[in-house]
Amino acid sequence: MPLPDDDHTGSRIREQRRLARLTQRELADRIPYSLSLLNQVECGARPATPGFVAAVAHALRMDSSKLTGPAAVTALPADRLLALVAPIREALDRFDLGPNPDLTTVRPTSVLIAEAEALCRQVRATHLRAAAKALPALLVELTHTVWTAPSTDVWRGLASGYRTAHDIALKLDYPDLARIALDRMEWAAGRASDPCIEAVQRYKRATLWRCATSAPLIATGHALLAGETSREALAVTGQLHLGLATVAAKNEDAGAVQTHLTAAREMADRVGGEAGEVHWLSFGRVNVRLHELGTAIAMSDFDAALGRARTIRLPDSTLTSRRARYLVDRALVEMEAGSPRTSLRFLAEARKVAPEQTRHLPGTRATIRGLVHMSRRAPDSLGGMARWVGL
C-alpha cells in the first residue's frame, strides 16, 4: 500500500490518532469539535485552525508542534547529540592550522593508522557513539602528524579519519558536517596521491548530493582509475558503477540503471568473492544484488523489489550496516506489498541488529508511516516503533 501524497497537519493528526489507538469518533468525543470536521481535517478538505490543533494536541497529550510539522528524527536528545558532533566539527576545522602547540604527547604513527582502521570498523558495526567519541582526538593527532612528520601512510590515515567523520555525520543526520568532512577527505587524499581513495571520495560526494552533478562526479572517479587493474581498483570501479546505477534510478532512467548494474556485475566477477577489505566498500556479488533491490525501490518498482528482496540471502560475514539496510528495505517492500505483520517483523529485526543506524534510515520512517496508514488502530508494537523514531 503506497504512502499518501499529502503531508499536512490533518494527515499527522490521523497518524497520531491511530498511534493512540483511537477511532475518529473516540477522538471527536474528546474535543469540542464535530466528527464531521475532524474527518474533513484529516482528509485535507478543511484546514486545521490553531484552536483545533490545540484541542487535538491536548486530547492526545502531546505538544502541538508534533501535529503542525514533521518531528526531528534523532537518536539522542539534542544536547547529547551536539556534544558528540561539536568536537568532530572542531577537529575538522584544524586541518590547515599547522602543528598543534597544545598537544603534549602524540601516539606513534602506526598506532594512529591502526585506530583509524578500527574506527572504520566500528562505524560499519554501527557503534556510532563509540566511534564519534574517539574520532576527534584521532583527527587532532593525525593532523598534527601530517604537519610535523608527513608521509603517504599518515595522509592516507587522515583521509580515512575524515571519511569516518563523514559517515558518522551522515548517519546522525548532519549533512552539512558530512560535506565538510568530504572536503577534508579530498584535501588529504590528494596529498596521499592515492587514486583509489580519491575515487572513493568522489563516490561519497555523489551519493551525498544526489543531484545533477552526481553522475559527472562519479565519472571523474572512473577517470582516476582508468587503466588500473588491481583488485583494489576493480572493487572501487565496480562501486562507482553501483553509484551511477543509484543516480540513474533516482532519475528514472531504467536503461542506465541496467547498464551500470551489468558493469558492476562484471567487476564483481573479476574481483572474485566479496572484497570487504577494500576501503570498507564491501563490493562484490552480494552488494550488487543489494543495489538491484535499492534501485528498484528508488524507481517505485515494488513488484521487482519484492521479488529481489525475498531471494537475497546475506552471508554471515555481511557487515552490520549492510544487514540493517537490507532489513529496512525488506520491511518497506513488504509494507508496499500489503504484508504489515511481515514488514513490522523485519523492521523490528533491523532495530535489534543496528538500532542507531536503523533509527536514521529514511526507509524506517517511510515504512512506519505506511504501516500506520494501513492500520485502523496501530498495534502496540507499531506505536512503540513510531515513538522510537519520533513520529
Rank of each mutant, 00 (worst) to 15 (best):
L138R: 11
M385W: 09
A366C: 05
D253G: 00
H127V: 05
A298G: 14
A366I: 07
A28V: 02
P355H: 04
A350G: 08
V140E: 15
M299S: 12
D194A: 02
G294V: 01
T148S: 08
L19A: 09
R345V: 09
A378V: 15
M62T: 08
I113D: 05
L92H: 13
A305C: 10
W147K: 13
E90W: 14
K250N: 15
C211A: 12
R376D: 07
V123E: 11
A192M: 04
D269R: 03
G307L: 02
I88M: 14
P2T: 08
S343A: 15
R107C: 08
A149K: 04
L217C: 02
C196P: 14
A28L: 02
P108Q: 15
R345M: 08
A264I: 01
R179T: 13
E292S: 00
L293Q: 00
E117T: 12
G157F: 01
A249N: 00
L182D: 10
A134H: 13
M335P: 01
C120E: 13
A264T: 02
P87V: 11
L234D: 02
H279N: 02
R25S: 10
P2K: 12
L261D: 00
R323D: 03
L361W: 00
A219R: 15
L138Q: 13
L224K: 11
R351F: 09
E15H: 04
L281A: 02
E228K: 12
G384M: 13
C43D: 05
F302H: 06
K171V: 12
A324K: 01
G363T: 01
P355A: 06
R341S: 10
S282D: 08
L240I: 03
G238V: 05
V236W: 07
S339C: 08
S193L: 12
V328W: 01
A215V: 15
E292H: 00
S151K: 04
R345N: 14
M62K: 10
T364G: 10
L261W: 00
R89G: 10
S36R: 14
E228Y: 14
G238Y: 04
A199P: 08
P355C: 05
A78K: 12
A331C: 07
S214Q: 03
R359I: 13
T229K: 07
L319Y: 08
L182Q: 13
P362D: 06
L128Y: 06
R369K: 03
L361M: 09
R121Y: 13
T320K: 05
A354D: 07
A386T: 12
P108D: 15
M1K: 14
V53P: 01
P315G: 10
T145H: 00
R124G: 01
R330W: 03
M385L: 15
L60K: 05
P362H: 07
S34Y: 06
T104L: 06
V286E: 01
E186R: 12
T320N: 04
R231Q: 15
A219V: 06
D253N: 12
A45V: 04
L84G: 02
E228H: 12
S110Q: 14
R308N: 00
Q16W: 05
Q258A: 11
Q40E: 09
L319D: 11
A55T: 05
T152K: 14
